[in-house]
């Protein structure tokens, strides 16, 4: 398992290439989407001259729509990888919300960030608080943005297009009118921005003060550790490839339970 740097710095291969590529493409797409989205709602100062000399708003909207497509396709691929990838690829999508161990972990992380705990826990994958935040924002938040985004996009493409038929019709009906969809799409943008601020800060912070590598892990896929004590989530996860939803759900429950064994070994 560990490609053994031997002695005190063991390493574990955590994030497979598709997960890492998804992460960075997502990061880029979200950056473009946030900036262009902001300027679609609150456009830049007026361009002087003739209308046919400019296409600024058109380009901004194109960048937004193109990045939106990339984000959506990436999300679909990532959903597939939940089943095809290793168990770390499932963590974000199937969090063990129904285990006590998970919530104890969340509490510990909160205490660690509040400077109450002296020592952080060590995790091969994400820590429980990160799993929760990422699950909410990067799974449900992105899903919400993709659905409302396509709903708004479908309005421009028009009735009869698949975007309109699949998204616009029922979404606009659900929210009441198009204007409300715009408002919620924009509110959720700010949620994503808040997440990004915390995510970037905490990744850098944990890289410096915690017991495992963060940034280099998302580039190389390998998690390095500062000491060789046992990680909180370094437990048996069953088969490496689970192809069914139930299978992976089971495994997330099982891993949640088996973690209790490793509870005191820190």
């Amino acid at each position: 398992m560990s490609q053994s740097k031997m002695h005190s710095e063991p390493a574990v291969y955590v994030y497979e290439a598709p997960v890492r590529i998804w992460h960075w493409i997502n990061a880029l797409a979200i950056t473009v989407l946030c900036v262009t989205g902001y300027f679609i709602g609150v456009p830049l100062p007026t361009m002087p001259g003739e209308a046919n000399d400019h296409f600024l708003m058109g380009y901004i909207r194109f960048a937004h729509f193109a990045s939106g497509y990339i984000l959506a396709v990436g999300f679909l691929f990532r959903l597939y990888w939940v089943f095809a990838g290793n168990h770390h690829a499932r963590q974000l999508f199937l969090p063990p919300f129904f285990t006590r161990e998970f919530w104890k972990g969340v509490l510990h992380e909160l205490r660690w960030y509040a400077f109450i705990e002296k020592e952080p826990h060590k995790y091969v994958g994400h820590n429980p608080l990160a799993v929760m935040a990422m699950h909410i924002v990067m799974v449900w938040g992105l899903l919400f943005m993709i659905i409302t985004g396509f709903a708004l996009y479908g309005e421009g493409i028009g009735m009869g297009s698949w975007q309109y038929e699949w998204f616009s019709g029922w979404v606009i009906e659900l929210f009441g009118q198009s204007q409300d969809v715009h408002t919620w799409h924009r509110l959720c943008t700010w949620l994503v921005i808040c997440f990004v601020i915390m995510h970037v800060y905490l990744a850098i912070r944990e890289d410096i003060v915690s017991r495992q590598s963060m940034i280099s892990t998302m580039i190389s896929g390998w998690r390095m550790f500062r000491d060789d004590s046992k990680a909180k989530d370094d437990a048996d996860h069953g088969g490496s490839i689970m192809t069914t939803f139930v299978g992976s759900l089971m495994s997330s429950f099982r891993s949640g339970r088996s973690r209790t064994k490793a509870d005191d070994i820190r």
Binding site: G41, V42, R186, T189, W190, L191, C194, I197, M198, Y201
Partner: peptide, 18 residues
């Protein structure tokens, strides 16, 4: 209040807290 004021405030608070 609108989406930008609510969201902008939230982002500013998160930024300051960070």
């Amino acid at each position: 209040s609108n989406a930008d004021k609510v969201g902008g405030t939230a982002a500013a608070v998160v930024g300051a807290a960070t």
